[in-house]
Design a protein around this nucleic acid. Structure first.
Length: 271
DNA sequence: ATGGGCACCTGGCTGC
DNA sequence: TGCAGCCAGGTGCCCA
């Protein structure tokens, strides 16, 4: 489900409730996630204070006094802040009970998410160490886009989903960024010129930034820390709009498959 | 090194 | 109504 804007919206929603709080207890209701929740997790977290909630790509980093909880929402995960006595629901996996009387609850129907504790530098963790630069930071620009596309024959859409080259962009925002950059998704990465790379880098930053300001995209089931959907779906130009008129030129939007994922584009606006 | 495909899961929808 | 088939916001891993 969540791409960078949804993860960032979640981070902003939970941080004010977590920062400075102490984790009193941890309840693991269902340890089955992408990797099983470590049976030692509860004893590792108990009594630790939350120093900050950070984000790296689509990972959330809950910085604690003696370590870090690394969480990923996968395709269907959500984190909510709830009063302690809130009844559990299907697919609730774990609760962090805080000294404030609130609970951070992780729900994930498809179980592609994860929850890992490390006492080392989380950025050096094998899952995070090789991730590409943050797309909203200064080192992600036209020159970077140009450099990583030089030798690659893959379609630019597929490249945008490669987390070792670009992070934070998932299937929705890959199509949306290419529409805004006016580039066809099937273009070979290495065929793109510097100006086109500049348009893509700029489009990625703009679409992610706009989506964060709208609280993310809810198509089916994404909810923020308060359980509310995001508002960006109404601003999508192409995603899930197959055969509907392009919002810019009225040409029917096309849907194709690339790497077993759907891609949407306007054959008129994108070249 | 690069790229393609599969795997991991549940749930919702469509069509017979 | 039941059931099979297909699709869905991610990404690690294996193979050519």
């Amino acid at each position: 489900m969540p791409e960078l804007p949804e993860v960032e919206t979640t981070r902003r929603g939970i941080e004010p409730h977590l920062k400075g709080r102490i984790i009193r207890t941890v309840h693991v209701h269902d340890a089955r996630l992408r990797w099983p929740v470590d049976p030692k997790l509860a004893s590792q977290l108990r009594g630790q204070r939350v120093l900050a909630v950070e984000r790296r790509a689509k990972y959330l980093l809950i910085r604690l006094g003696r370590g870090t909880l690394i969480m990923h929402l996968g395709m269907s995960g959500s984190l909510r802040i709830l009063p302690q006595r809130t009844a559990r629901q299907r697919h609730d996996h774990l609760d962090l009970w805080l000294d404030s009387g609130q609970v951070l609850r992780f729900n994930d129907p498809r179980r592609f998410g994860c929850c890992l504790y490390t006492s080392d530098d989380p950025l050096a963790h094998p899952l995070l160490a090789k991730l590409a630069p943050e797309p909203l930071h200064g080192d992600f620009d036209a020159a970077y886009m140009h450099r990583i596309t030089r030798r690659r024959r893959v379609a630019i859409k597929s490249l945008l989903l490669n987390g070792q080259l670009i992070t934070g962009v998932g299937n929705i925002y890959a199509s949306e960024a290419l529409f805004r950059a006016r580039i066809r998704p099937r273009r070979a990465a290495r065929s793109l010129g510097l100006k086109e790379c500049a348009r893509i880098a700029s489009a990625i930053r703009r679409v992610l930034g706009s989506a964060i300001r709208a609280g993310g995209t809810t198509l089916r089931d994404y909810v923020n820390a308060e359980g509310m959907p995001g508002d960006f779906a109404v601003k999508l130009y192409v995603y899930e709009r197959a055969a509907l008129p392009c919002r810019r030129c009225r040409t029917p939007i096309r849907q194709i498959t690339q790497g077993q994922r759907s891609t949407y584009y306007c054959p008129e606006c994108q070249r």
